[in-house]
Simulated assay, not measured.
Amino acid sequence: MTIDRMQKAPVVFVLAPALTIVYGLVRLLDGLDGQHGPGFLWTLGHVAFLVALFFFGFVVLAARRMIGGGLVATTAAVASLAGLVCSIAQIGVDIVVGLAADDKAAMRKMLDAVQDVPGVAVAVYGPGPALFYVGLLALVVHLAVVRAVAGWAPVVLLLGIGVAVSSHDLLPVAGLLILLALAPLARRAPAYA
């Protein structure tokens, strides 16, 4: 399936959380030696999550479209997309640092240097990425209000977000919960024009 066809298919509601699960599982494998990164598994996991984040962008746009637009849905979508941009920047930095560093100490030093740049710690490693989850949750709540999705979907999504925030080691569980919340939308999502 090409990217063009992927953009037109509601399969992103499944692929985005599925790739989050992949990232979480690869991250667990990477940590079996007691540390995460640098190396092949670090890069593989982060690339999987980077693709997931791009797919989540299509999820956000499709959810807004399913609601029918409007101020609340558009505001939630804009917030979510802004959070995605911050998250994509974070993952991009992590990939570059993981590729450039020879060991964990060098990686930590490079990441510290990036975070010392004014504004980066807040926008890229702080509350910036959280906007994605807040906006996505608002969209799914709105979809439940207009009965485009069952009332349990926002609850399961909130659980998934809570699990993701509580521990990176639980990302496979978080991805599974997010998948459960979003998968029903795949049947109802409009194709992209």
Rank of each mutant, 00 (worst) to 15 (best):
T2K: 12
K8V: 04
P10N: 09
F13K: 07
A16E: 08
I21M: 13
Y23K: 03
Y23W: 06
R27Y: 11
R27D: 12
L29Y: 06
G34T: 08
H36F: 00
H36P: 00
G39M: 10
G39S: 09
F40T: 11
F40H: 09
W42E: 13
W42S: 14
W42R: 13
T43D: 03
H46Y: 11
F49V: 06
L50H: 04
G57E: 08
G57K: 07
A62K: 15
A63K: 10
T75A: 15
A77W: 01
S80E: 04
S87Q: 12
I91N: 06
I95T: 09
V96A: 13
G98C: 15
A100L: 15
A106F: 07
A106S: 08
M107G: 12
V114I: 13
Q115L: 14
D116S: 14
V117C: 08
V117H: 05
G119P: 09
V120R: 05
G128H: 08
G128F: 12
P129E: 02
L131M: 15
L137V: 08
L139T: 02
V140Q: 01
H142L: 12
L143F: 10
A144N: 00
A148H: 12
A148P: 11
A150D: 04
G151R: 03
A153W: 02
V156Q: 01
L158Y: 02
L159P: 02
G160A: 08
G160H: 03
A164Y: 13
A164G: 06
V165I: 15
H168V: 01
H168F: 00
H168M: 02
L170M: 14
L171E: 07
L171G: 08
V173G: 12
V173M: 13
L176H: 14
L176V: 15
I178H: 04
L179Q: 09
A181S: 01
L182N: 05
L182Q: 04
A183P: 03
A186G: 09
Y192M: 08
A193D: 10
